[in-house]
Design a binder for these strands. Structure first.
Lengths: 226, 226
DNA sequence: TGTGATAGTTAGAGACTATCACGGTCGCAA
DNA sequence: TTGCGACCGTGATAGTCTCTAACTATCACA
């Protein structure tokens, strides 16, 4: 399969990597303009000055390109979050607050990529989904760390749920964290996602409301609840 | 335009209405199986025993059919919620709690329709979007009522935001409700949506976690915060 | 300098949305 | 009852898309 990513070092491999990158860039532009349905391999190829079928030398198919974009996006989100966490040298409360803001900021800056991440990550439940779940972990790690600095580790979690969280943590190497912290982190994620998802889909715009202060309230409420 | 919905009463109009309904039913089945991308007018027509172009007598185009489905779905959600609210004769706390559960239950029962509602309701910002926003109001009304029975009406809301909520309420006839209640209701909606959206996209499944207890915690936390 | 892997092309199958012109049919009014 | 007009459904067609196959040109490297 010529469409696989073999990481060689010859000039041909470097050329290959560059074209792949150009394809992805063009794809992101298309995504930003017309949504994921508008992503057309044909159009991308034309933009890069080649014919449609040439792209299949670089990506096995449309889904494969999308998967690549998703993985990149997870990486970007994670590094944006961890940069924020590291830059914030103050107390744990402001660090978590800043993290919440950074989450929204990233989503608003690149709504099409955010949508790509959390809209239907597992459309095909096959092999790829495993790598997608894998790719989503670093971002979760940042959240977990920030929450665990604040949450009381002994809050009670129903036994069944606790076991599920323990297993999940073991599977992904979050083993130092109490289940209560994992549960609270997941709820924080859900809170942030709820606001952000409604916002980027235009629900607040259509209400004529600027959700900034709602989001702020959301974050501070959560931090206070820990 | 033959594709418009003229509401006459002759036999021809009744036939027309029935075919439109059959088309929508087939569309929902397709949607449930393969997601919104899989919705194919061609396939629907074949299922109903006609050729593709015949469908254009009933719906102007693919988007028009989808818009119809969205409006129907809003109606269904609203009536599911209001049925729950009316059936619950107990105190305001359990009524709001039941409402939260009903919201999730509807979304889990028909994830494809829930997705249709909150995924990209305003893809084209033109005339249709107004009717979509209109269609989403009844469900919001139920939430507002249930929250206003509990929330303290004098909680402070930043002045700018308060003005926005006042305008929004005026536009849609929610005028009896204090702005603080509107703000809290919106946050409740965001909470519910956050959990539900993550759940129906399979994020908890891929974590191996049953989010039921998280959702319960979500709802009770919110009710307690009022 | 020759050879094999790779990049890109054209042609084409099989989907799809959507438009058009045509013929059949049904309802309704004269 | 009859005739007309509105409406339904069809086949043909344009234009889009993904993806495959066969072929050619080119480039790296031994």
């Amino acid at each position: 399969m010529a469409a696989e990513t073999r990481t060689g070092t010859g000039p041909r491999d470097r050329f290959r990597a560059q074209v792949r990158q150009e394809v992805k860039t063009a794809a992101l532009r298309q995504l930003a303009e017309g949504g994921p349905e508008a992503l057309s391999l044909n159009a991308i190829a034309k933009q890069l000055g080649m014919t449609g079928p040439a792209l299949y030398r670089y990506f096995a198919n449309r889904d494969s390109l999308l998967t690549d974009l998703v993985i990149d996006a997870y990486g970007d989100l994670a590094s944006a979050l961890s940069r924020t966490a590291e830059a914030c040298t103050e107390d744990a409360v402001t660090r978590l607050t800043e993290l919440g803001r950074a989450y929204r900021a990233w989503a608003l800056a690149e709504p099409h990529r955010y949508r790509l991440l959390f809209r239907a990550p597992l459309q095909g439940y096959d092999a790829q989904s495993a790598s997608l779940v894998e790719a989503s972990q670093p971002a979760m790690t940042v959240l977990l760390d920030a929450v665990s600095a604040l949450a009381e580790p002994d809050a009670r979690v129903p036994e069944g749920a606790a076991a599920q969280f323990r297993e999940w943590q073991e599977r992904h190497g979050f083993e130092g964290v109490p289940e209560a912290v994992a549960a609270r982190s997941t709820m924080l994620w859900a809170h942030l996602h709820g606001m952000v998802a409604l916002e980027i889909e235009g629900n607040f715009t259509s209400m004529g409301i600027d959700p900034s202060f709602l989001y702020e309230a959301e974050v501070t409420d959560f931090v206070r609840s820990l």
